[in-house]
Design a protein around this nucleic acid. Structure first.
Lengths: 333, 333
DNA sequence: TCTATTGGTTGGAGCGCTCTAATGCTGTAG
DNA sequence: CTACAGCATTAGAGCGCTCCAACCAATAGA
């Protein structure tokens, strides 16, 4: 259980510790002969550099910390893919930590991540208060994904939720729907823009918005539908705040003997892998998730390399993915 | 961007660095007066200890590394929840890293994790070769989840796949099914035990096993069903290798005009959140995922604290979760 | 021939912390 | 009044590494 140190490698290769250090960092100013000797010794000993000692000594870090608010949501997995790709390309390591959607746990996760003194932090849809983020931002560069911020030292990557909601409404209207309700995401991140986009798009079409309060879950979507049915206010189309909500809505509709999309059309939001399942086949709004990750990592690395001090505010364009849960009112099936 | 050090706190509190160190570690041998003075100074400066320097100096670590082979799979998220819970309880931090189901990326992830010299490592369903795991196990304690190993320094946590498959078959037989096919997980981890359990259970009931080669995905499940239909070999019940496969199977059955469970019953495996969605409502085999995580963390911490050197081989009991995709042959709906 | 210059190499200080052994300081016993 | 605990406190070495300045050929320029 004892790992060899640089000293051991140096001894075995018959060189100084400093030379080993240079080889490990791929310095060009090492003769080929010594380089191979050192690499051979390292290989034989099974040596690999101690990242912490390195970062302590160099007062720099090649680690990017990522806080994922909810590991259960596959949305974030794809963002992480994008981050990973760019980070690896540029020689950075990624460590992940999760906040479990609880501000307290998230705060602890943040602390933990900070204690590694990473080069920078990417927070995926964090729920901690803005002040906590601001405080952390005094210590290192921070990029926020799927959450906005006014702090000038913080970069943000978001999708244009208003536009996404508009795409959905336009699609439904073009199918001939007039009564379209929005199952609202309440306090959830990005729920605001989506709601605003929905309302604006409805009004632009001269239609009456119908916002039903709900949440980002399966069960909440079902509940909202049941309340609509009870109050006899069921429209011909539903725009859910996200895919889970939409799937819950669909199952409540089916339980009530209604057919989707024949009786009611449903549109989700996020294009999670769930939506793509043939069995679900949900019409939804896609966000370029991996692109979120790539842009986040790039923005962060620019700050890390001090190439930029101005904040960046990316607003990516979502797109409509038409599957089998939307049709003209009273249409197929 | 400059964080205060212990020295700064010591200076401000008018004590030595060593004393600050003691306070930070909650040592009992510090007078109340000095303790409060130090804490006050630390608070004022916004000081928090540098985890890396600490671990370097103490030659110990309070970090547990977790390698998740596939972040997209919510199965692992719940295991991580269990790990997190136990680790936090015992004052350990968790850092996560992902291998994206590719041996090369996973290897890199492993390297990266090792470079932090964590106290131990938990690998969730890794796909790296056993030799790589054995090598890492020489350096620190390792626990494997959802993958077995013969290395005596490695602990393993698995579900009893044979028993799970048996539960599923027993359930289907008790409903009256005689022709039950298994959509096999091929090379996937745990596919072997599930297949063996299925075959053994079928034979125990005096029935003829029918193993159809497939994979752990939605699309593969659908493909397998189509091939069964084409070759006119469709049974009255299907035991899929996992939930995704089962959902794919269901959608292919429905596309073919068959009703689930009226015409064909389908059982999944894993009880992912997908299966619980009301819209899917899949009968499946549940694995105690959070329990996997808890046991993994506990096993690891026992090794870390050198309380045990004998390997532990946990084999957890899966359980049957009956939902709406199984019924007697030609039964309801 | 002597001094610059260059490219490879090295010793040693120091990153922020922990840990051991030693120190000072009471208070009590001899 | 000395001796000796017992306790709180501290100096200093050292964890594994990087980085700087110094060093040492070997070559180039004068």
């Amino acid at each position: 259980m004892v790992r060899p140190t640089m000293e051991d490698v140096a001894l075995r290769a018959g060189v100084s510790r400093a030379l080993v250090s240079l080889v490990m960092r791929n310095s060009p100013k090492v003769s080929e002969a010594r380089r191979t000797a050192v690499l051979k010794a390292a290989e034989e000993l099974g040596y690999s550099p101690h990242a912490m000692a390195r970062s302590l000594a160099s007062r720099t870090s090649t680690v990017l910390g990522v806080m994922v608010s909810d590991l259960h949501n596959a949305f974030f997995a794809e963002v992480v893919d994008g981050i990973d790709e760019v980070a690896r390309e540029q020689g950075f390591d990624v460590i992940i930590n999760t906040g479990g959607r609880s501000p307290a746990r998230e705060r602890r996760a943040l602390e933990s991540l900070l204690s590694f003194r990473p080069a920078g932090l990417i927070l995926l849809s964090p729920v901690v208060p803005a002040t906590a983020i601001g405080k952390a931002a005094e210590q290192l560069p921070i990029v926020l994904v799927a959450r906005s911020s006014r702090v000038s030292t913080v970069d943000t990557i978001n999708d244009d939720g208003e536009q996404g909601a508009r795409l959905a409404v336009d699609h439904l209207v073009s199918l001939g729907h007039k009564r379209i309700a929005h199952l609202d995401g309440g306090e959830g991140t990005q729920a605001g823009p989506r709601r605003r986009g929905y309302v604006a798009a409805m009004e632009a079409h001269g239609l009456v918005p119908q916002v039903v309060s709900s949440e980002y879950t399966d069960a909440a979507g079902a509940r909202a539908i049941r309340s609509l049915i009870e109050s006899d206010a069921l429209p011909t189309a539903i725009l859910s705040c996200n895919d889970f909500n939409a799937v819950g809505a669909i199952s409540a509709l089916e339980d009530a003997g209604l057919r989707v999309p024949h009786d009611v059309s449903v549109v989700g939001y996020d294009n999670t892998s769930l939506a793509a399942l043939r069995h679900v086949s949900l019409t939804t709004i896609d966000q370029p998730r991996a692109e979120f990750g790539r842009l986040a990592a790039e923005a962060l690395l620019q700050r890390v390399r001090e190439e930029r001090t101005e904040p960046v505010r990316h607003l990516l364009n979502p797109s409509l993915v038409v599957r089998n849960t939307t049709a003209p009112p009273g249409g197929p099936r």
